[in-house]
Design a protein around this nucleic acid. Structure first.
Lengths: 213, 213
DNA sequence: ATGCCTACCAACCGATCGGTCAGTTAGATT
DNA sequence: AATCTAACTGACCGATCGGTTGGTAGGCAT
């Protein structure tokens, strides 16, 4: 914990054991889930022994929740850096989708970790201090869209728009490995073009305009 | 396996051990995943002993894949029953979304099972006979939309529309438990109303029409 | 120098894991 | 009546699980 002369020199070149444990745990849990990863695996990947992991975290569950909350906090921090001042609906929507999409692929482990929790039935999320973080993050996205809700058609609520945007990005991320295979059959475009089509679809709808007579 | 006089009488009132194993395995795997469920749990839930499970399935993996493929086949069978003949884009889209959504909630275990596979990194899906089933199912949905692609604006591809529809439903299902909590903050509507808003959004877009001068 | 604290480890614990095996039962086949 | 086979079970196997214990090494305050 305390950086001595020697230790601080180490910290420049290589990370502390605790950091390594958290890093490797995030990657492993994201890939195979809570039950699919043993503490021994995490320890080995981090280059320490199993007992050392239990020195830093009382239980496996505690390690897991710590990793989980770190991912949520990263989302909040990235959202802080997103500025949408004085932009209209179309520009906001585009920047929001771009930012979110970029974030997902910058932190694939954390993203997959939370996605995993969403699928589990008695999820850890609901009954842990992590959940309010997610809720707050969602609120912030809704707020960004509410500021331009006057540009939306009546009957379209900012919350639904927020949910659609986040859903499409998350689900796109979740099924990205399948896209190339599905693309063969359904002619799905690659990501940048696909994002453009999605944005177009959300803004203007899919139906061809029938001109008023 | 073979129904005797006595056995067939039993089969009317209660299911065979094999059926019970598959049923309980589906529910348990859906809730907690492959690694989160032990064969002993499945056996206990099905009212047989552990060795009996291994009598019907050589390995745990084999049981899992069997349950998984059953879920995919159920999707295909349900899709068979969906008729959209002689309907326009709007009507088709509505019926497609309704059907898909209803299917998800009719078979929540199977749905969650596949959703779980999508999140895993080296997923069982990709390298198993299950994957072509999914691919084929997706193709069929795209085909249903392609028949009315002339009603779509230029630049909107049926494959993207299919992906959007399925994504929104699946992600809505996946995060349904969170909806009521998120609703408090973001004023998310309940399901039927939410579906209506989504449909409206997809058809006509979110942006208010600016009338041509 | 002494005592104290944090980081770290080898060895160990009981429980449970996936899977095996020998043996029983009962209906079908000959 | 004898044989075969599928369905089923209890007891067991080695490996691994999450977690504990006892102890070492070293920086630091007294």
């Amino acid at each position: 914990m305390v950086p001595t002369l020697l230790a601080s020199a180490y910290e420049i070149s290589e990370k502390s054991a605790l950091t390594r444990i958290l890093l490797e745990a995030e990657a492993l849990f994201a890939q195979r889930g809570f039950d699919g990863v043993s503490i021994n695996e995490v320890a080995l990947a981090a280059g320490v022994c199993k007992a050392n992991v239990f020195h830093h975290f009382a239980t496996k569950q505690e390690l897991y929740e710590r990793v989980l909350s770190q991912s949520c906090e990263a989302f909040a921090r990235s959202l802080d850096a997103l500025e949408l001042k004085e932009q209209g609906l179309a520009a906001r929507l585009r920047r929001l989708m771009d930012w979110h999409n970029a974030f997902l692929y910058q932190r694939p482990h954390g993203t997959r970790l939370i996605l995993r929790e969403l699928t589990g039935s008695p999820t850890v999320l609901e009954s842990s201090p992590v959940f309010p973080l997610i809720q707050h993050n969602f609120d912030r996205v809704v707020a960004l869209l509410s500021e331009v809700s006057d540009e939306m058609r009546p009957g379209i609520s900012p919350a639904v728009v927020a949910k659609v945007v986040l859903s499409l990005n998350l689900f796109g991320f979740q099924t990205e490995r399948l896209n190339e295979k599905l693309a063969v059959s359904g002619a799905l475009a690659m990501r940048p073009e696909l994002q453009r089509q999605l944005l177009d679809l959300l803004l203007h709808g899919m139906q061809a305009q029938q001109l008023p007579p």
